[in-house]
Nucleic acid binder design. Structure first.
Length: 291
DNA sequence: CGTTACACCTGAGGGC
DNA sequence: TGCCCTCAGGTGTAAC
């Protein structure tokens, strides 16, 4: 679910609720591949520490600790990072959603999907990482150490230039959209914003990468940045799970031109939006506007 | 090396 | 109601 805009909105809204607070306790679920660092080790390295900075690279959040360690967080498909005072139906299972009235929703109750909960010495709101599908990740990086997941990331999507994309397209027969999703080329673009960016650039996602011109590479990168920036402005895309740290929904799902609009008319020309599978992911495009 | 298939999970929604 | 299928903002790995 979360792509660069959702991660960046999470970073901006979580930072003021996290920085400078001393961690008093850490609660987790049982060990699973969600934890790249074991719950036991997380607890021992986090307790007593303070987060001094919250950064982002691509879709990763990087929480720097006063110990010099770095906590890496990835939201995967269904990850949710929020404060304990957040109120949203998205933070509940469907049954809880329908059986409770809004006023009964008061007070988030940690459930089996609540994998990480940080408590603080100031007694204020806990910070919670919930993830139904567990494709999210948490990794504690000891001071001075790096990680292959970070090392292989390409230029951040907001900093990318047309030339960065162009370089990756040479001698590549793979669809241009598949390259956009490759985090080692440009970091941060996911399925929604790739489709939306390509629509804005008027390039069909299926186009062979080596047949995309330099001018089109410029246009694709600029268009992707435009939709990513707009995604941030509107608070991200809340389609099924994504929720902002304070519990609010994003608004970008209402501005989609092609993503998940199969069978609906193109908002530009009226042609029917098409859905095709590329590299095991759905791609959506307008066959008339995108060539 | 580039490309593709699949695996990792859970839940929602549709057809029968 | 149940069952079985497909689909979902991601990414690491194995196999050609």
């Amino acid at each position: 679910m979360p792509e660069l805009p959702e991660v960046e909105v999470t970073r901006r809204e979580l930072a003021p609720r996290l920085l400078g607070r001393r961690i008093s306790a850490v609660h987790t679920t049982a060990p699973s591949y969600f934890f790249l660092t074991s719950p036991a080790r997380l607890k021992s390295r986090l307790k007593g520490r303070t987060v001094t900075d919250l950064g982002r690279r691509g879709k990763y959040l990087l929480a720097r600790l006063d110990s010099g360690d770095m906590l890496l967080l990835h939201l995967g498909m269904t990850g949710q990072l929020f404060t304990a005072q957040a109120r949203s139906p998205r933070l509940l299972s469907a049954t809880a959603r329908t059986s409770l009235t809004p006023r009964e929703l008061a007070g988030f109750k940690p459930d089996r999907h609540t994998h990480l909960r940080l408590c603080f010495t100031d007694g204020g709101d806990d910070v919670i990482f919930r993830d139904v599908r567990k494709f999210g990740k948490v990794l504690l990086l000891p001071a001075g150490r790096s990680d292959a997941r970070l090392d292989k990331l390409g230029v951040d999507a907001l900093q990318a230039r047309g030339a960065d994309l162009l370089k990756a397209t040479r001698k590549r027969r793979t669809p241009i959209k598949t390259l956009l999703l490759d985090q080692s080329v440009i970091a941060g673009i996911g399925n929604i914003y790739a489709d939306e960016g390509l629509f804005l650039a008027r390039v069909r996602p299926t186009r062979r990468a080596d047949r995309v011109s330099p001018a089109e590479c410029d246009r694709i990168v600029e268009s992707c940045q435009a939709v990513l920036r707009r995604g941030i402005e509107t608070g991200g895309s809340s389609i099924s799970d994504y929720v902002r740290p304070e519990g609010g929904d994003g608004g970008y799902q209402d501005e989609r031109k092609v993503y998940a609009r199969e069978g609906l008319p193109c908002l530009n020309c009226g042609e029917t939006i098409v859905r095709r599978v590329l590299g095991q992911r759905s791609a959506h495009y307008c066959p008339r506007c995108q060539r």
